[in-house]
Amino acid sequence: MHLWRYKLSLRGYRAMILQHMIFCLLLIHRGQPLIVVPLRAVMATVGEEVVLPCHIKPEMDANGMRLEWARPDLTPGFVYEWADQKEHVVNKQPSYRGRTSVVKEKLEHGDISLKISNVTISDEGIYRCLVPQVGQEAFIKLIVGAVSFPTVTVISKTSSRVVLQCESAGWYPEPELLWLDGEGNLLSAGPTETLRGPDDLYTVSSRVTVEKRHSNNITCRVQQRNTNQSRETHRHVPVPSWYLKLVLVPGLLAVLVSVLLTIHRWRLR
């Protein structure tokens, strides 16, 4: 299963996971130790810390073993090496220096999980967990996302309507932008403009024109379906005084007429 030298597509990754599951079942039947990783991809956010789980089953002390974490698509591909009870950095990929580690206290329990700090977009990919002494390797996919809260500003307004603009910068992968009214219904808005910066992060913006009405609470929502992340900002559009008069005055008149009729009937008794 020495596939780490080749760049793996998502389809290839799924096929490889299926092969690994079959291989693990055979090993379980033979009573041999396993390298176990989650079947699902691990999600991470830019700037945060993430752990890629990897364990030896049944539990055994990995402190004195050689451990290798690598990326199939990088040269050099090693992101972490452990041997002789210490880390080796000679063959380490430069972009990971100072950012990857294992928890030494957990090695004796067979926990060889990789911790990556200050996650970047370029960290996204497929990782190989290998223990040569056990004679096995396993692969795990890391998906990286970046999110930010949108800002809503007033571009122009008249006595009856207002034009709002929503903008949100620092997203990855590319998100979608939605406008919603106070009841959660989608509003018809202008096209979403998308820009991709030199840091590979996306900025999205859009404008919407809304009529000034009662309970006009407008929401701008930016969401990324692949990472199941969303952020939103609410903006209240004030009701114009003429609209209040239009709505309230007839109501007050109706109440006044009802009161007068009641008093008139009472006097006739």
Rank of each mutant, 00 (worst) to 15 (best):
V50T: 07
V50C: 10
V50M: 12
V50A: 08
V51S: 11
V51Y: 06
V51T: 11
L52I: 13
L52T: 06
L52E: 00
P53K: 08
P53L: 10
P53W: 00
P53N: 09
H55Q: 08
H55P: 04
H55M: 05
H55D: 15
I56E: 05
I56R: 06
I56P: 14
K57L: 14
K57C: 09
P58D: 00
E59G: 15
E59I: 01
E59A: 14
E59M: 02
M60I: 04
D61M: 00
A62E: 13
A62W: 14
A62P: 00
N63T: 09
N63A: 11
N63W: 12
G64W: 05
G64H: 03
G64C: 07
M65E: 00
M65V: 10
R66K: 07
R66A: 15
R66C: 09
R66N: 04
L67G: 06
L67S: 02
E68S: 08
E68N: 03
E68M: 11
W69L: 08
W69T: 13
W69I: 02
W69K: 02
A70Y: 01
A70W: 09
A70C: 02
A70M: 05
R71W: 12
R71E: 14
R71F: 13
R71C: 13
P72E: 09
P72I: 01
P72G: 02
P72H: 11
D73Q: 01
D73N: 12
L74K: 13
L74Y: 11
L74P: 15
T75W: 08
T75F: 03
T75P: 07
T75H: 13
G77N: 08
G77P: 03
F78K: 06
V79W: 14
V79Y: 06
V79H: 04
Y80L: 13
Y80Q: 03
E81L: 15
E81K: 15
E81D: 12
E81Y: 05
E81T: 13
W82N: 07
W82E: 11
W82S: 01
A83R: 11
A83P: 14
A83F: 08
D84K: 14
D84E: 14
Q85F: 06
K86V: 03
K86Y: 05
K86D: 13
E87M: 12
E87N: 09
E87R: 15
H88F: 15
H88K: 05
H88N: 03
H88I: 04
